[in-house]
Design a protein around this nucleic acid. Structure first.
Lengths: 141, 141
DNA sequence: GTGCTCTACTTGCTTTTTGCAAGTGCTAAT
DNA sequence: ATTAGCACTTGCAAAAAGCAAGTAGAGCAC
């Protein structure tokens, strides 16, 4: 993946050039649920990403403006990763993936509860969740 | 990719296990726009998938029930690939990817026109497009 | 029928990417 | 001063992607 240029002008293809691999959306997922993560938070995720692959993905996601690095407020050796607006805007895609997966596979019950609300008012809950993420990343200021 | 088992119970992760690579969604895209494709149709797409990779993806997508093979009505040596319901249901995800890409990159103007309608009434146009696909695959009977 | 073409793949080989284990450099706590 | 935690890097083997060429069956053309 890394620095490959785009394969065509198709929006699907261009999007996949950025985050169309097995790991990128899991990083985004972690950031959407936890709001901010350290490098080792990502490593702790159940899927078990390899550390060198994680480093490569984080760099690519940052280069493409989906995430951003911050220093930890009270620990110089810690780094925090957060979503940018461009990253937050992947939320509708994530929601739809969840809904698709719900229809075609069995998922954990905590996810099911969350999706119940979403299905009642998709646009509304996306707006609410987006706002929450936006605020937490300090992007509203 | 191929036969790997699932990495976790997360719906995002499970979905990516099936179609989370650089090529699968482009195959789905082709089927959504063309309704049915032959092997060589896929090869002709602008991104230029390698023939062995295409064969592997088609097999995986069929094994996972997203697409299905049919014989060509008037030519035994031709094969037609079509979406199943499970594949058609990826439409909302594809739409959201298009919308995201529209916001963050420049896209061809024919796509822009299509998205204009979508933005006016997202749920409505997804329903219409799904119905059209469903009918064309003969899944309504 | 023989030969030629088209279609849907397969095979073999090189290059790139992934996965895994171990290591490095910096910070912070004991 | 030693140890521990964190954010990576490095080296190497295994897997996947990319590329070129080949194969098997169907469908004409003669």
């Amino acid at each position: 993946m890394s620095k490959g240029k785009k394969r065509s002008d198709c929006p699907i293809s261009c999007s996949l050039d950025i985050w169309g691999d097995k790991w990128s959306l899991l990083i985004i997922r972690d950031l959407m649920t936890a709001k901010q993560c350290t490098y080792s938070d990502f490593l702790r995720s159940p899927e078990g990403i390899a550390t060198n692959v994680l480093a490569a993905r984080l760099q690519m996601l940052e280069e493409n403006g989906l995430i951003k690095k911050f220093g930890h407020p009270d620990n110089k050796s810690k780094v925090l990763y957060r979503l940018t607006r461009k990253g937050i805007d992947l939320l509708p895609i994530m929601i739809e993936i969840n809904l698709w997966a719900e229809k075609y596979s069995t998922l954990p019950k905590d996810r099911k509860a969350l999706l119940k609300d979403v299905k009642k008012d998709k646009a509304g809950s996306i707006a609410t969740m987006t706002k929450e993420l936006t605020k937490h990343q300090g992007l509203d200021r």
